[in-house]
Simulated assay, not measured.
Amino acid sequence: MDPVRYRILGTTQVLRPDGRPVPVGGARLRALLTVLALRAGRTVPVGLLVDEVWGDEPPADATGALQALVGRLRRALGADAILSAEGGYRLAAAPDDIDLNRFERLVGDGTRALADGAPAKAAGVLDDALALWHGPALADLPDHTAEAARQETRRLDALRTRHTAALALGHAEQSLPELTALCDTHPLDEPLQALRLRALRDAGRTAEALVAYEDVRRLLADRLGSDPGPE
């Protein structure tokens, strides 16, 4: 039987092999599943689980409360889904059963394909990777700011690589709307700005590219006190 799949790139979800969701009710239950899925196949210590699920407000009997929560999660997913190990618990899942792990694997594959001179392959693989995102990463963790920011940075890296592949394929015009929106959101991201300028140039919009370059030059000077890099 095919394994279930776990989504943590957005609201935490569990999907059966046929795509039907497994109901996982309750914020604490989803938080527990998120922490376990982040470390799928590894034992997560009880103390870390309590910290991640309850934050600064742990229950008086934290160990007992965690045991009860694990019991509820086992009833939802199956008794063998959460394994007890010395000092903690482990989600019985292969790395590729977790969308975050699949995303990282696919991004690596796409990046290597682009470096090997296969932009069409890179574009397809990176599209598959980016399609795994369904909202802000780790949305069900009470305090997920640092880890979520790290994953968002990884997503932005993947978007840059995807647009690099698009330009190599001659798809500059198609890339421009998203590149412009990304530059508006991340104005100090110089590699992203460089991609937008290349896309404008490749689309034959040279005058716009020159104006956009001057805008970036002034922005970097005003905000960072620096000039644009050679690229």
Rank of each mutant, 00 (worst) to 15 (best):
Q193S: 06
V107S: 05
P142R: 01
L73W: 01
N101C: 14
L69K: 00
L83C: 08
L210C: 15
D227E: 14
D109C: 13
A146I: 13
G64L: 09
G47F: 11
L192R: 05
L106S: 01
W54C: 00
R102M: 03
V53C: 08
P187T: 08
G64W: 06
L176K: 10
Y6W: 05
L132R: 02
H186S: 08
A76V: 09
A120G: 15
E86A: 09
R5G: 15
V35I: 05
P177D: 06
S226I: 14
T145I: 12
R155Q: 07
V50K: 08
R42Y: 13
L188E: 08
P59W: 01
L200W: 09
L91D: 01
H144A: 15
A166Y: 11
L38D: 03
R74F: 03
L38Y: 01
Y6R: 09
H163E: 00
A122I: 06
L156C: 04
E178I: 03
A199F: 02
E231H: 12
A149G: 15
V50W: 06
R105C: 12
L15R: 13
L32A: 05
T185K: 12
G204R: 01
D184I: 14
A62T: 05
L114V: 08
G78C: 03
T111P: 15
A209Y: 05
I82V: 05
A168K: 10
V50H: 05
L179S: 07
W133P: 14
L220K: 04
A85P: 07
G10P: 02
N101D: 15
S84C: 10
L9V: 00
G55N: 04
R28I: 14
V35K: 01
A137K: 07
D127C: 12
A123M: 11
A212Q: 00
T161M: 05
G225Y: 02
Q151H: 15
P21Q: 11
L192C: 04
A85Y: 03
T206P: 11
V4I: 13
V4L: 14
E57T: 12
L48W: 06
A158H: 02
A37E: 03
L77P: 04
A209F: 04
D116R: 12
E86C: 12
T111V: 09
I82Q: 00
Y213M: 10
A76K: 07
A212G: 06
L83Q: 09
L114F: 04
V70E: 04
A194K: 10
N101V: 13
L138F: 00
